[in-house]
Design a binder for these strands. Structure first.
Lengths: 246, 246
DNA sequence: CGATCCTTTGATATGTTTCAAGCTTAGTGG
DNA sequence: CCACTAAGCTTGAAACATATCAAAGGATCG
């Protein structure tokens, strides 16, 4: 809004650049997007199924998840978001949200009007393409989660989830290795992997005893990255990052 | 290519119009896309993980599926495609395919050069937006599959899958109700739902005994649509079709 | 600093898988 | 057009991974 560009939205630019090329003009235009910063505690709903959303939520700090509720009231977490992710880009084109967004940890987010995003896409086809590419990368992550839940046993599922969270932190510029933020309770891990919290606990214990990880309070330590990837049948290709990380 | 537009690609126009508005100009431009028609038998690979694809595959007749292979060699089917679907749109922006596409039945497809699709998007932002919206709808379907596999039991999973296949046939203009094409073997249903073929069989039997469906050779008959939807915890909203169907 | 939520562990129950074998259907070649 | 063969379907019995129930100890937060 002022002459030296506001740098609050920089994580969004960096995120898009992990998958697409952006010109200086476009980078600047993104930084200039109107937005409203918000700080929230853990376990707050940022959006709800059925909302007619007027803005998208860009994550600046902390972690959020997307979740669906079944007819029986069970919750399935379908994806996680962190620094640089737009948690509900689909609001740009769908008129009604079909899932909830909630904070897993304390978060700082920027709410960006949909109108502004669509105008930006219209003005710069390059931006439209970058968002489309990001939506496709999200789709690829969804496919991998379908595989994870459908074909892998508990140990593989949990190990795979740990790998994803750790690698995405790397790419998003978090500190590490080998120490990373662990943003989820065991119950939330259960909702993300289709397991019960009790079984998640037993699985964590096993991975700990195998010397792969160490889990203390709100952080993970990766003791054996190669071993953890093998345990989780993890191959980072599905994340579609251009440069290599970790 | 000639003056009266070739109508081969009409299903693609119709499909995009279930989710977006298209102008006459754009409709015509889509019909004029260069393409090559191909007829294939069931169980043929149309694309493979790792391919550097130069074109996208539009389904004209028959059914295909997207699948991933785990490190242990297990196959997870992540989505199904029929008349009007582009089976691998992500090839437009990703440079390497991360899944297989195979025919479930005999199929007729049109291979459309990626170059032509991207040029069309550049010329008509409206087309770019329609494709983006379609990618988002696919993402929504992936989320529902994650929910289906992660939170529902065998009976619900199978019933849900049947509902999806039937409703998508409705929207794509297939004949019915109550008779629809059933494009999958029980083993393929297992790979789509994270169940074993044996258990799929027992589940089908149960749905049959409950008077919900009748399954004969390559077709399903829906005996109780409301009951089947209830059994599958099915709510069509996630398919993001504008008009109502069924 | 109390109260709630989270983690940990044990014992038991259950849905789904695995193994195995017979049967049916569909496709293919003589 | 029939016979042969492979693929898919069906069913039963036993094994197993994960869910469920229950209860105690620890951490976190307002």
């Amino acid at each position: 809004m002022t002459s030296p560009p506001c740098m609050k939205l920089l994580p969004m630019v960096q995120r898009l650049e992990t998958r697409s090329d952006l010109s200086d003009t476009v980078r600047r235009a993104i930084l200039d997007l109107p937005h409203r910063i918000q700080n929230l505690r853990a376990n707050i709903f940022l959006a709800r199924q059925g909302d007619q959303a007027g803005h998208c939520i860009l994550i600046l700090k902390g972690f959020t998840c997307q979740s669906l509720i079944s007819g029986e009231g069970k919750r399935q977490i379908s994806s996680l978001h962190m620094r640089g992710d737009v948690a509900d880009l689909e609001n740009c084109l769908h008129h009604q949200s079909d899932h909830d967004i909630q904070s897993l940890t304390a978060v700082e987010v920027a709410r960006i009007p949909i109108r502004a995003i669509l105008d930006l896409c219209a003005a710069h086809p390059e931006v439209a393409r970058a968002f489309w590419a990001d939506t496709m990368a999200d789709a690829s992550i969804f496919r991998e989660w379908i595989m994870n839940i459908g074909q892998r046993d508990a140990r593989q599922r949990v190990a795979h989830l740990i790998c994803e969270i750790v690698l995405r932190q790397e790419v998003a510029g978090f500190p590490g290795p080998p120490h990373y933020i662990w943003p989820m309770t065991q119950s939330e891990v259960g909702d993300a992997t289709g397991l019960t919290p009790v079984h998640v606990q037993r699985t964590f214990k096993r991975l700990r005893l195998e010397g792969l990880i160490q889990l203390s309070q709100k952080s993970v330590t990766i003791l054996n990255w190669a071993g953890l990837q093998a345990a989780g049948d993890f191959n980072k290709a599905y994340l579609h990052h251009r440069q290599q990380a970790a």
